[in-house]
Design a protein around this nucleic acid. Structure first.
Length: 697
DNA sequence: GTTAGGG
DNA sequence: CCCTAAC
């Protein structure tokens, strides 16, 4: 049972569009993969069975089958991953904890506590639902922890083949406790003392880690991240199996390597193809590829200076995200999730709480998040009639990650980071689930909504959803950056997205290894990039020209801050995309004139002749413009967009196109402008080899 | 570095 | 506009 829950909680909430997916073939191969897919459904059962086995076995984690029927995960590999990732302990943990916690918690509850009410939903949802928040489970016994661990492992295996770290899991148990009681929360906080934790992280961490006991090892951040993602994602993420280089490379290319396992297979495939296509992959198939890919994925920065790919990725990501969300929402309703933990003190909830969200100035969504955070604080401090919530985790969409065994830990970290980043990259908003149903009316008070300190907050869950496009505030460059000191965390956190923190923790850690990115400093950059990328996206969508102006949601910013490293690369690359500068009629005329004279195979000459002073018009641009002009001339005026091009020019375009199509560009000498005429060109076509001279008249 | 095309 | 393959 427990296990299942875990799965559910996994970050389903995020729909990371980016979840990279390994090629299907690969997936099949990897047991983890298999597990993931199949196991989702059965995950709970499997988990339960596994848990039972584990209990019986006592500790060997190794081969528990995550999915009874489906797959079994080979713990070994997964484990390996975990260990590898361990590099960074603390932060990752947070993430992991979160993810793990959530699931774990739930499971725990269910099983031990037998809270059918809360858990059931999860279990069904299992995999996916977004249990954004885990409730605080009442029990946090060591046993549970063990269970959790097992489950986690199993889950991981099954699902993503993640190796979930036991630790991470264990934390969960702690989380459960936390979630359950305020004390628990406190604990988390205390436990969270991890050195690095950012406020956000801390908040995230809450749930899990702490515990006791667990001491355990803090999984390296990266690990945690991975685990978290895995667990959350239902295991979409597949770590470890490294299959073919090619495949890897593909993944990388996928841009994101992340895939949302469910939803977007098709899309993902496409992406993957593209990614795969990229040179990079070809060049460095294996580990290198992987890394590169990550880099690429992040942005392809390395290879492509431009962000094109990056953008695409993001778009994809967004797209995917949306899908996830959609799903998740659905799921939610069904199963629900909830994971929020609520430790609620019995007080009444009122709008006030919402209002409290202090600082949230951002978007509405942001506010919600903040409130959540505040909830934590509140729980600690407690207020009279406030609903105290402790959010252990947010669900995020599944992240599907495949990494070759030969991949380096650093690459894995990067990959995870990218996935997370991708998720965060988009605008995120928090969704509130009550009894598995989305609470859409933001104006209602908590009491009105049925959320009161007296009530069972178990039914309350939070999800991260793709936010509507909000008018983003102008990018503030560096402000957001980031990371808050642990102590201050709460307040700061409030302002920042909850999710982010978790991500941050995970990400940064993950990234470090890779040479590509470095640290915090970069984080800022990455942040920027991120923003820019987003902006680009926005611009593209909106057709706005200037990127610089592109606003970025505060949330994003924060999130970005969190995600630093990979992003950086992206940004640089992304940022590069040139702003769109539609050709003016005069430019079109100059182009037409030049082409009439020079033909269509001498773009450099065209450039020199007609656009020598237009630095922003490259010969490639001119070639492309000609291409579009020809197309425009062929379509009906109704189908044309943008500034209308005089028909006269279009006629000339057609004439020149026809003419030059019949003649090799070579010969042309110079034509006097205007000399070329349709009739002439047509006449030429007929077969007569008309030399330029003829045209010239 | 250019061209030519696909995306 | 971007990205690539071919030259």
């Amino acid at each position: 049972m427990v296990f299942k829950k875990r799965l559910d909680y996994g970050f389903n909430a995020f729909s990371v569009s980016n979840v990279p997916r390994a090629p299907r073939s690969i997936r099949k191969r990897d047991r983890t993969k298999r597990v993931v897919e199949d196991s989702r459904i059965c995950a709970f059962e499997l988990l339960a069975s596994l848990a039972g086995k584990l209990l019986e076995e006592g500790g060997s984690s190794a081969s528990s089958d995550a999915s009874a029927g489906h797959d079994h995960v080979s713990v070994g590999k997964d484990v390996k991953l975990e260990t590898r990732y361990d590099d960074k302990p603390l932060k990752t943990e947070c993430v992991e904890h979160i993810s793990c916690d959530a699931s774990v918690v739930t499971s725990d509850w269910n099983t031990e506590n037998s809270d059918s009410s809360k858990e059931p939903k999860h279990s069904e949802d299992n995999a996916i639902l977004e249990p954004t928040l885990t409730k605080a489970p009442p029990v946090c016994s060591e046993q549970i922890n063990e269970y959790l661990k097992y489950t986690i492992q199993k889950c991981n295996v099954g699902y993503g083949s993640f190796p979930g770290n036991l630790d991470g899991c264990s934390p969960n148990s702690g989380e459960l406790c936390d979630g359950i009681s305020e004390n628990g929360v406190k604990r988390e906080v205390e436990t969270n003392n991890y050195p690095t934790m950012d406020p956000l992280e801390v908040s995230m961490t809450f749930p899990a880690p702490i515990n006791s006991d667990r001491d355990v090892k803090l999984p390296s951040r990266s690990d945690s991240v991975l685990n978290a993602s895995f667990s959350r994602h239902r295991n979409d993420i597949k770590l470890g199996s490294r299959d073919d280089d090619d495949k890897f490379s593909r993944f990388n290319k996928l841009s994101n390597r992340f895939k949302v396992s469910r939803p977007a297979t098709c899309i993902e495939d496409r992406r993957i193809r593209k990614l795969l296509t990229s040179k990079y992959w070809k060049a460095a198939p294996k580990l290198k590829d992987f890394e590169d890919s990550q880099a690429d994925g992040g942005i392809k920065a390395l290879h492509r200076k431009r962000k094109t790919y990056y953008d695409k990725c993001q778009y994809d990501t967004l797209y995917k995200r949306r899908k996830f969300f959609d799903r998740s929402s659905i799921v939610t309703s069904d199963g629900r999730i909830g994971s929020e933990n609520v430790s609620n003190s019995p007080e009444k909830v009122t709008n006030e709480n919402e209002n409290k969200c202090p600082s949230v100035a951002m978007s509405h969504g942001a506010c919600e998040i903040a409130s959540l955070l505040t909830g934590h604080q509140a729980s600690h401090k407690s207020d009279g009639s406030h609903v105290k919530l402790s959010i252990k985790s947010f669900r995020i969409p599944e992240l599907y990650i495949e990494v070759p065994e030969t991949a380096t830990v650093g690459s894995l970290k990067r990959t995870v980071m990218e996935a997370v980043t991708a998720l965060l990259g988009g605008r995120i908003r928090v969704g509130v689930l009550l009894q598995g149903k989305k609470v859409r009316d933001d104006s209602r008070t908590l009491l009105q909504t049925g959320i009161s300190s007296k009530d069972d907050l178990d039914a309350l869950g939070f999800t991260l959803e793709p936010g509507p496009v909000i008018a983003p505030p102008p990018i503030c460059s560096k402000e957001p950056p980031l990371k808050l000191p642990c102590g201050s965390a709460p307040q700061i956190l409030t302002s920042s997205l909850v999710v982010t923190p978790a991500l941050d923790t995970g990400i940064p850690d993950a990234t470090p290894d890779p040479p590509l990115l470095t640290n915090s400093a970069k984080s800022v950059d990455s942040y920027y990039e991120h923003v820019s990328s987003q902006t680009d996206m926005l611009t593209d969508q909106n057709l706005s020209e200037s990127r610089a102006l592109v606003p970025v949601p505060a949330m994003n910013v924060e999130a970005l801050a969190v995600v630093p490293v990979n992003q950086k690369i992206r940004k640089s690359e992304l940022a590069q995309r040139r702003t769109r500068r539609p050709f003016s009629v005069s430019e079109v005329e100059a182009l037409v004139q030049a082409v009439e004279e020079l033909g269509t195979g001498r773009w450099r000459d065209v450039k020199l002749r007609a656009f020598e002073n237009a630095d922003h018009r490259t010969y490639v641009d001119l070639k492309d413009k000609w291409k579009t002009l020809v197309h425009t001339a062929k379509i009906s005026p109704q189908q044309r967009r943008g500034e209308p091009v005089p028909q006269e020019l279009l006629d000339r375009v057609m004439a020149a196109h026809a003419y030059w199509s019949q003649h090799q560009t070579k010969q042309q000498g110079k034509h006097h402008p205007g000399t070329l005429r349709i009739t002439d060109s047509e006449a030429d076509r007929i077969g007569v080899v008309v030399a330029i001279p003829t045209i010239t008249m």
